[in-house]
Design a binder for these strands. Sequence first.
DNA 1: AAACATTCCTGCACGC
DNA 2: TGCGTGCAGGAATGTT
Length: 276
Amino acid sequence: MPELPEVESLRQLLEESLIGRTFVTASVREPRLRRSLPPDFAKTIAGRKVERLDRRAKYLIFALSGNHRMLVHLGMSGSLSHRHAPADAGPFNPRHDHVQFDLDDGSLLVYNDPRRFGLMKLYPDADFASAIELKGLGPEPFDGFTADSLWQATRGRTAAIKNLLMDQRVVAGVGNIYASEILFRARVRPTRRAGRVTRAEVERIATITPQVLREAIGSRGTTFRSYRDSHGEPGRYATQLRVYDRKGKPCLECDKPIRAVVVGQRSSFYCPQCQK
DNA sequence: AAACATTCCTGCACGC
DNA sequence: TGCGTGCAGGAATGTT
């Protein structure tokens, strides 16, 4: 479901409702996510206050009282919703409400994830610095990702540029939708071998990446099928997409039909006229 | 009913 | 030969 803009939008909303709140209790209805939650997960959560909410790449990081952090990744179909009535699942299928956190003001935070590709993991602060999930992540698009870093990452590589853009070690947070959008704006075909992308093109990609992600955050992300924010609202960026899911539709720049190709087993979209 | 917003693992090819 | 790296493909799963 979520790429960086969706996760960041969620972070901003949840920050409003959760900072300073305490998880009185938690209950795990379905522990089998990508990795199973440990038996003591709910017990470890109980009584901890949410002191801060951070994001790294597509991970949410809850800083909790008592020197613990909770790492959350939403996988393909995960969501975190803040609810005021226990029965109010809104647009979420309650069948996939896997973890529930009960807050001290009577509201709830619910982790819902139909496909269960997501991750929730607790770390004592001492171990968090070396968290395996965050270990190899590349620079944040807004902090450290530059033409130079991308240039270095692409030299000598034969993989498609789109695959490298989605490689979390190269830049953190870009996924399938925004990779197509970024490459359209940079006028580079997704299939180009990374090592053959010119310096000028690398500079365009590096400049445009944070711009596209910022705009998407401004629209609270993209709802392609089912993404909903913590209030159950869809993201509004879908109307701004220039190529993703627009196969056969006219390019907004030149009117040529947008093409769809599979790159690294992921569907990719580009304009054959505007992108070289 | 094919496709899907992600990541992790395997196996093969290649180079030193 | 043995090891490290890069890359492709498949798997995890339920929904539309």
